[in-house]
Structure formats: structure tokens, C-alpha cells
Write a protein that binds this DNA or RNA. Structure first.
Lengths: 200, 200, 200, 200
DNA sequence: TATGAATGAGGATTCATTCAT
DNA sequence: GATGAATGAATCCTCATTCAT
């Protein structure tokens, strides 16, 4: 008996609900510290049902970590590396990134764990790493563009890009205060310095 | 009959050995993922012996995290905030910090987890946070010094200091490659930009 | 989907089976000497299942001790303190009590332990103590009745009642022979003497 | 090198101290609930030392239970079964016994446990049982004497003796109040009734 | 003899996963 | 598909006992 559309929708909602509460739990309690029972309770379903949507705990974890990447791609990669005004583009990019990072506290806490324990979560980490490398690449190209136009000082572009993403994740890590506060905005101009803008 | 000196020394060595392997395990496998059995095997002792040195797993973890702080204080705080040449002092400081961070891969991975799961490790985190605040304070004062001498551009000193420590921990997180490579050295001059040195 | 009636019945049976074998084990091996593994093996279930029915060992123990009290109340308190013929009522009561005590060897052995280690099992003991006090009270009233009718010699009724229940539990303790033997019957008339019946 | 007299005395004292605290612990915490460490701490010695005096925990327990029996024999058997005035002898005996039982709260709690768990402590229990039987025997003979002299009503002497010792241990069990209170004295005359004294 | 570190068997409990209903 | 009872591997920890000092 095939499922009705309503049922399908219901299951999708349920699945998403599980992912949401699981993200929170994995982030705050860690992988081993998160039990299927806790997840099911937070999602208001029986623990047996979790296995209806995910084959095992590991798959749940992987999904929680990797699922949001698609959505993230769109916003994180939304800048033009060959822009005519690279400084302006850089500022826009930083602003966008900062806002995203400020608002994704829980998810990024999770990411930090995967990175920190990359040998344990090697497969999942590997996907994350690829994602990161693509971002580094695109940022590098924008930096290169700025340097060619003599608007940024000469530095190894990839190094700068690496420092930039390091700074982003570092800020997220250091700001345990989960609120998207003004603090984040005050960071923007200072971060810009990292790229070495040339004053005219 | 009190223990002989040789025995005491032996116990100290053993204890340190446990801490060493435990640091490695906690860092790579996480708190829950690290079992006392694994620790004892890595330390080549019986698991019962772990409890001779530490009352329980939690105490072992706390010791692993907090014990190195004293030693770290000495090297991390080794700079003069009221130096006559703040730029030079800043460069020296960055160099020192970078080398420390580059060499403490395992321990810092652990720190990252405590910060990431600060609600879970609230007590331990709290001590870490105090340590961090003291460092921020001292760095801030050096930045202020540089700004007063018109050698650094005007930025909120505490913000810059925060970005600086965020960058340090971020680099450590992003550089899963554990080797103390040349890369780290190449970072130094770029990091300097964060502080906004004024070219004359 | 709620559990079917058959399943519920099955669980009830299983629970009762656990209680039964646990009573036996706690009685003969003591609290600490009784392991969950032994209980589960005696009940022919996995040890994990014991925790499906009882949160922990302590709860299992408490249930084993306190659960039978309700049932016991009915039979142990089944006498009339204001009976017209207190002597006859007393004899009937003794007979009933003796038969109950003779037949509950295992459970009473357990009770003896809780009383003996009352500081260790203080909470459980407290409930038992209340139960005992109620019984003492009712017996006292019957004794008083007999004394008022000049059918029993004058003695402090509560003291006599106390001696009576002490005697009951003492007999149970001394009669390690578990069988409900004729011995018990031979006790009845002798026990009667404790109450000091007046020969006419 | 033989031990000096002083050392020997010291060891004897230490041994007795261990037995004393062990009695208390075994009585209140049970056999399994009592650890060698607890014993050694209560006795203010190292736990290794306990094994200097007793080969293992079981031997310590056995000694704690059986050692006092010799001393007890003297006081408990101190009555004359062929006394000319059996009633008076009986009263004296009861008084003595009551006082002993009132004052040995801890030890008797321990005895109760051995009796209750006689299958577990079968060997130790067996010695206790022999002791008990001897006492029953001697009390029986006194009862018989009384009956022959027509000072006690006719009852199976051994039954009465059994009820008597049951009553003693039962009182001890029921009187969790450890103090040697007046209550015990008030019991004496009532207990006498058990033997069925004939009023003249 | 006294001490206490080392050992590892054994205990309570947790938890992912299976599966009957 | 949803539920939750059943299972048993695996975990932390305790503790009797051994033994070197």
C-alpha cells in the first residue's frame, strides 16, 4: 500500500524534526553522549521510530552534519571572485559570512567537533574538508583579484584565505554566547585588515 | 612505612604517562569515546591502576585539560604590554604563540572540544575561560600601547585581541595536519595585519 | 500502538516471576550477595530485561520487601479486638499467624534482614516499622479486652503484644527448617501462655 | 627474630580492635557491604594489615561471629537445671539472659544475619546451631525439673525452650533501639508466663 | 610486620539495535 | 509505519587479594 501524500509530508516533517533535535544534542552532548532515547524524547517519538528514518546512529550523525551543506553552499559561496571592485566584494562577503556564522551556533559547534575528532569521523570529515577547500579556493581567487588590482598588499592568497576561514571558525568557537549580538558586526572591519587593504 | 623515593618517582612517571595517553585519546576519540580500558592499554597498565591515580574518569579528564595551563601561562604570557617598541613586541608574541600552538596539536584539539561542549564540561570550561580572559586582557594592553604610540590603527583593543585568539585557535582547528610545518611561519606576517600596523 | 492485552498479561507474569526469584535470592544471599545476573538467570530472562521492570537493584529490593505487605495486611489483621470471647479470638489469631509465618519462610527471612540492617535499609525499614506498629496496636487492644473481662492476667498490653510479635519473628528465625511442619502447631498452646490466660 | 612481648601485646590489641570494628560493620552493612578498606579505616590501620591478622575476609567474618561464643557460654549457661527452686532459677536465668541480650545489640544483629542467610554461611551457622542446641538442652532440663516438681504446667519441655530462645532473639530483633532501656526489664515477668508457672 | 600500589574478576547499569505486535 | 520490550555487548567502577618495599 503506497503512502498517501499527506503521510509522506508527515514523514518528511518528522524526519526534519529528528534532524533538528539531533543537531542540538550532538552539538551539546557529543556523539557518544547523545543517545537515541534522548533524541526520540526530544522529538516526541518512540526510539524505535528513529530507526525508521535512519538506519543507525552513525547515519543520523552523518546526515545531521552533511545535510545542511547544500543550503550553506548557496549563501557561503555567494560572492564574485572576479568582481570589478574586490574590496567592496570582500567587505560584502565578510559581512555575509559573519552573519551566517553568528546565526548557526549549534551547527557550527557540531562541525568543530567533527574537525577536532577528524580521525574518528574521518569519512564525514572528508566531505567537510572538500567543502572547505572549495571555499578556500574561491576566496583565494578574490584575494588574487584584489592583489592584481593593487588594492590588497602582496601575500600568498591561499594563506590569507586559510587565515580567514580559520578566523571565522575561531570566532564562532570563542563566542560561546549564542546570541547574534552587535559584537559580530564590530568584527567586520577588523577582519578586513587581515586581507591587507591598501589605503589610498 | 612511607614510600621510597624511587617508588614516588615511578608513580609520578606513571601518572604522567597516563595523562599523556589520555590527552591523546580524549582529543581524538572524545570524552565518551575514550574508555578507561583504552587509556590503561595505551599506558600499559591494568585498568584498575588508572583509579589509583585518578578517582574517576571525570577527574582524569579535568586533570588532562587543566594541568597544562600552568606551564602554558609561562610561555603564553611571556610578552611586555608596555614595551617601548610595541610592533616588535607584537611580532615576537605572535611568533611565540604560533610556535606553541603549532606544537600542541593534541592538547588544543582537546581544548576545542571543551569549548565546543562547554555546557557539558561547564566547570572545566569555566577555568579555561578565566585563563583566556587573562590572556585577552594582556594582549589588549599591548594593542592599546601600540595605538597610543600611533603605530597601530585605531580599533577597539579588546575586539582585536579577541579576533587574535580566535584566529590562533581557528588555525589550530583548521590545520589538521599535525606537523609543525613551515606553513605556520608563513602565517606570522599575515596575522600581524589583523592589528593594523601603520606603515611609515 | 498500545500493548495488546496478551502482552500486558505476559509482562505482569514476568514481573511477578522476577519478584519471586528475587525474594528467594535476596533472602538467602543478602542484598549485596544477590546480583542482577543471578536474578535474571533464575527468572530465565536477560539481565537487561530486569531493568525493563525495575529501575535499579534498590527498587527491585524495595518492591520485593514492600509489595507483599498489602496482601499480608488482610490475613494478619483478620481478628476482632473487641470480640466477646477474647480467649477464643486470641487462639484463633495465634493459629492464623502461626500458619502464615510457617508458610512464608523465604519472605520473612528477608524481613529479618531488613530489620537487622535497618540503618542500611532505613527507608524500607521505616515502612515495615509502621506496618508492625499497626499490628502491635490491634493486638494490644485485644489483650486489653481480655484483661478487662478478667480472662487474662494484668500485664502492660503493649508489652505483651510486643513480646508476641517478637516471638513470632523469633520462631521464624530459629526454625531454619522451611517445612510447614507439625512443630508449628505444637507451639500454639504454649504461645497462649504468654498472654497469661486465667484458668477458671 | 622473635617478637618482643610488647610487640605481641600490641598485635593482640590490634587484632581485637579489628574484630570490634568489623563486628559493627558486618552487623550494620552486611557481609558483602563490608569492605576490608572500611574495616581498616575504622581500625586506623592500612588495609594490607588486615591480612596480617586474618587470611581473608571470610576468616575475619567467621572469627567475628564465633569468637565471642566462648565468653557467651559462661554467662548464658550460668544456671542450674537441677536447682531445688526451679521457678526462682528460671527467673534468675531470664533476667541474666535479658540483660545479656539487651547489651549485645551489635553482635546479635550479626547473628541474626548468619541465621537468616544460613545457606550462605552454612559452616559458620552450623557452629552457631550447635551452640544453640546445647543451650536449648540445658533450658529443657530446667523446665523438666520444674514440671516434675509440679511448679510448671505440662508442656513439651523442648518446645518451651525453643519458644524461649526464639523470644529472646525476637525481642532483640524487634528492639532496634540499641539502648539498654527499662523496657527490657519490664519483659522479664511476662516472659515467665511462657513457661506456665503454676500459681499456688 | 606494615604499607599501599597493582591487578583483574565481577557488579550495576546503559544503550544501540532487533523484532513482534 | 509506530511502538517499546528484549537482548547482551560494553562501560565505569569496586574490591579482595597479592607482593615489593
Amino acid at each position: 500500500m503506497p503512502l498517501s501524500d499527506e503521510q509522506k509530508l508527515n514523514m518528511k516533517k518528522r524526519r526534519e524534526n529528528i534532524l533538528e533535535v539531533a543537531t542540538e544534542l550532538f552539538a551539546t552532548e557529543g556523539y557518544e553522549g547523545t543517545t537515541i532515547k534522548k533524541v526520540s524524547e526530544a522529538a516526541n517519538i518512540s526510539y524505535g521510530s528513529v530507526f525508521t528514518y535512519f538506519n543507525d546512529k552513525e547515519e543520523l550523525f552523518r546526515t545531521v552534519v552533511l545535510d545542511p551543506l547544500n543550503e550553506l553552499t548557496e549563501v557561503l559561496f555567494d560572492f564574485n571572485p572576479v568582481a570589478d571592485d574586490p574590496i567592496c566584494e570582500l567587505e560584502k562577503m565578510i559581512k555575509t559570512h559573519i552573519h551566517i556564522f553568528a546565526g548557526m551556533s549549534t551547527y557550527l559547534t557540531l562541525i568543530v567537533q567533527v574537525i577536532g575528532q577528524h580521525t574518528k569521523f574521518s569519512e564525514t570529515f572528508s566531505e567537510l574538508d572538500q567543502f572547505h577547500n572549495k571555499l578556500l579556493d574561491k576566496v583565494s581567487r578574490l584575494v588574487e583579484n584584489g592583489q592584481e588590482k593593487r588594492l590588497l598588499i602582496q601575500q600568498e592568497p591561499f594563506t590569507v584565505a586559510s587565515l580567514y576561514t580559520s578566523l571565522l571558525i575561531g570566532i564562532r568557537l570563542n563566542t560561546t554566547d549564542a546570541r547574534l549580538s552587535d559584537i559580530w558586526d564590530s568584527y567586520i572591519s577588523s577582519i578586513m585588515n587581515l586581507f591587507g587593504p591598501i589605503k589610498k
